[in-house]
Design a protein around this nucleic acid. Structure first.
Length: 769
DNA sequence: GTAGGCCCCTTTTTT
DNA sequence: AGGGGCCTAC
């Protein structure tokens, strides 16, 4: 950022530019800070909090809501640098979900929950929806669990309860049109199932907070008084439920500051409503608006290119983002034949740039639209011996073996948790199958109790099972009850060890000597390590009895992004554009710029969707500090098939003057000017084999030859009969070599690409034999 | 009641 | 390519 951090107790404001200073110093009413990409948004938030503390506001009177746990942690530590660890620690700072989960736990009784409620993650939610659909004997093609849950989620984020949903003729009409007339009932059942299991899903954390505030004014009053100043980061990505929470809490004193950038709103699929930021001023009369327009992160070229892109969107708050940094390199757009070659090009460029620019691996990031794209890059990086770290995808806590163990924890802490019960009633196998579980379920429903309660007293509920099964159920009951008893005295780590040992999980894990089994065992060990660490750090901070519940509530809102170990940071970062929000890297590769991928096929039917995709691309480009490379492939392997792909429409949205070789159309501008012939061939090739699939059989790292250097060793030694591996055309045999002017030219018969002629001065290949 | 194999379907992004 | 659901054989 623009100035070096100084730990000074006077003149905090002197570290800021004029716009930032104004935003920080205004504390008497509602304010909206429109912060362009890289304009020091986090800096404003941290300094503002530090400033409030300096003014004498106690830290526990400040509520600061961030988008991710990681953002909260980072901000906290930066504030600690300014005002000291002690005060920083007492701030109420975290994500909406984690802060209000905490509040809901302490106010649980008011809304009819116990404070040990479980939090369902999305896969738990989907499972429950799937189960209900099955119970209602509905067609799960018509009612796809994911889609149904998505609809429920949207309803909750708009604070539409099941009752309101069923009463809303417009929605009912819509569902009927969509051939899902029973959706309201699924929602109803889903919600009451969660409640009877003393569980909440992610959306409930926000919805019940609103219900709590609505129905218990004294509670609302309490938190209104406590949170004397409220700050919200990434406001453009809040939904209605979040907006209303903020509004209610701030309504008495109006000391609220929200920060965001409408141009970076990328979460509408999750209910985020861009209107929250666009209409903030009318929601909070007297709002002061501050605009941060100077970008300190990126070169002028990158900022200008991004601006030219985002200009193509219609709805936005006017702002003029500019940079006073050096002009920097132009954006390079490169095409590849296939996704594999795309990965190869990127990994080669990383290897080269690392040497040329003395960059560390952690200065590089590869950003893609979908998680599935990571695979090709992983492979190419591994082959080039480039260390990398993937964020997202299957997070550690989503792995089956981990979720199974966590389900034990959940059932112990909250025995009414139906989802957890189902997961482990027969894991490891103990002879309690689907039939028995179905009986338990119907018995439970008949008596309106939880599955666990049936198991605690099968006779009382007339559970109809034979003696053998009854015995097995008894065994399961005493196993879990034993853990519940031990939970009274043991700390989280000790109990976890006990569970893994006594449940039979350990035996199963050790017996499995397959590589997958061993990695599962390893993951379990890692979970234990994490728990041990959790317990120890909590103890260091003076907490005494660290119970399973403490670990669980910590862990259920954790995502992969939050668990990064600082130790191995010399790595290239691979992540989706979504998860890159708020981060920055010296050198960024935005990959897969193809129609139906980026923009996603899902989004392009509507203008709104398309504009969101464009904002996403904007976010991707603005992550870059020094250089940005964009790639696309002409064929891509997706869903088990190789399909032809066309370049993304977004490429045309970037003003060509900011693009390397920008005067040419990007279709022909395949590689830097050194490869004119190559691009001609590619075009011909694409025309003649539009429906063919091109997948190199082997991907071999290819030595790159800079065009300015004299002939490479490879090129000098090349002879007729050699077999070569070409960066783009794959493997081929040299049929003849001739001189053309001052240059040698080789004729090569490629296995898949056919006959080609290569100018040896420029060709990128290696000799195989 | 369980295990193993086949077939289907999938994919956008995440707290 | 991969996971999950469903069916069949024991």
């Amino acid at each position: 950022m623009q100035k070096t951090e100084k730990n000074s107790d006077s003149g905090l404001l002197s570290h800021l530019n004029e716009a930032q200073r104004a935003a920080v110093a205004f504390c008497d009413g509602p304010s909206l800070v429109i912060a362009g990409a890289g304009s020091g948004k986090t800096r404003v938030l941290t300094y503002k909090i530090a400033y409030l503390l300096e003014q004498g506001l106690p830290p526990y009177y400040i509520l600061a809501l961030t988008f991710t746990n990681k953002a909260a942690r980072e901000m906290k530590s930066r504030i600690a640098d300014l005002v000291g660890e002690k005060r920083a620690r007492r701030l109420w700072m975290g994500t909406f979900h984690s802060i209000f989960a905490r509040i809901l736990r302490s106010e649980a009784e008011a809304i009819g929950f116990q404070s040990n409620f479980t939090i369902f993650d999305s896969s738990d939610s989907n499972n429950l929806v799937r189960l209900i659909i099955k119970e209602m004997e509905l067609d799960d093609k018509q009612y796809r669990p994911g889609v149904v849950h998505g609809q429920i989620s949207r309803a909750k984020n708009s604070l539409i309860t099941p009752a309101m949903y069923a009463a809303n003729t417009e929605i009912i009409q819509y569902d009927r049109m969509a051939k899902r007339p029973q959706l309201f009932e699924i929602y109803q059942r889903y919600q009451s199932r969660l409640r009877s299991g003393n569980s909440m899903d992610f959306d409930d954390l926000l919805m019940y907070t609103n219900i709590l505030f609505r129905d218990h004014k004294e509670v609302l009053e309490k938190y209104r008084n406590q949170f004397q100043y409220i700050l919200v980061d990434e406001y453009q990505d809040t939904n209605f439920a979040q907006h209303l929470i903020v509004k209610q809490l701030a309504d008495a004193h109006h000391r609220v500051c929200v920060v965001g950038d409408d141009a970076q709103s990328i979460y509408s699929f999750r209910g985020a409503n861009i209107d929250n930021i666009l209409k903030f001023k009318s929601n909070f009369p007297g709002t002061q608006i501050f605009k941060l327009e100077q970008n300190y992160r990126s070169t002028r070229n990158i900022v200008n290119a991004a601006n030219s892109l985002i200009k193509k969107n219609s709805e936005q708050i006017f702002k003029n983002v500019f940079s006073e940094n050096e002009e920097g390199e132009k954006i390079e757009i490169r095409s590849a034949f296939s996704d594999f070659e795309e990965a190869l090009i990127v990994s080669n460029k990383i290897a080269r740039m690392r040497l040329e620019k003395y960059a560390g691996y952690n200065d590089f990031a590869i950003l893609y639209r979908t998680n599935a794209q990571s695979r090709a890059f992983e492979e190419a990086l591994r082959k080039n011996n480039i260390p990398y770290r993937i964020y997202g995808g299957l997070s550690f806590y989503q792995r089956k073996e981990i979720k199974d163990i966590i389900s034990y924890f959940r059932l112990i802490v909250n025995p009414n948790d139906e989802e957890a019960f189902r997961r482990i009633i027969n894991y490891p196998t103990r002879g309690i199958g689907a039939v028995t579980v179905a009986k338990i379920t119907s018995t439970a429903q008949r008596h309106n109790v939880s599955l666990w309660q049936v198991v605690t007293a099968p006779l009382e509920y007339n559970l109809d099972v034979n003696t053998g099964t009854a015995k097995k159920l008894e065994g399961f009951y005493s196993l879990i009850q034993g853990f519940i008893d031990k939970n009274e005295t043991m700390n989280a780590f000790e109990l976890a060890q006990e569970i893994i040992k006594n449940s039979g999980i350990a035996k199963e894990a050790y017996d499995d000597m397959t590589p997958e089994g061993m990695s599962r065992a390893q993951n379990m060990q890692e979970l234990l390590n994490a728990m041990n660490e959790f317990v120890e750090t909590q103890q260091e901070q003076g907490e005494e009895n660290i119970r399973l519940a403490d670990f669980l509530s910590e862990v259920s809102l954790l995502t992969d992004q939050d668990t990064d170990n600082e130790a191995d940071n010399e790595r290239v970062t691979l992540m989706t554009v979504h998860s890159a929000k708020g981060l920055e890297f010296d050198h960024v590769f935005v990959v897969g710029l193809e129609e139906d991928l980026f923009p996603s096929a899902m989004a392009k039917s509507e203008i709104r969707g398309l504009e969101e995709e464009r904002r996403l691309f904007y976010v991707a480009i603005t992550r870059a500090k020094k250089s940005c490379t964009i790639t696309y492939a002409k064929s891509r392997f997706r869903n088990g098939q190789t399909n032809p792909a066309t370049p993304s429409r977004f490429l045309k949205d970037i003003d060509s003057s900011y693009i390397e070789g920008g005067e040419n159309d990007f279709i022909t501008r395949t590689a830097p000017a050194d490869d004119f012939w190559g691009s001609m061939r590619e075009q011909r090739l694409q025309n003649t084999m539009s429906n063919h699939t091109i997948t190199p059989k082997r991907v071999v790292p290819v030595q790159r030859v800079a065009s300015s250097t004299p002939l490479s060793k490879e090129a000098q030694e090349l002879e007729v009969g050699h077999i070569i591996e070409h960066e783009r055309f794959g493997r081929g045999v040299v049929t003849s070599i001739e001189m053309s002017g001052n240059d040698r030219r080789a004729f090569v018969e490629f296995e898949s690409a056919g006959k080609k002629q290569l100018l040896l001065k420029f060709a990128k290949f290696s000799i195989v034999e």
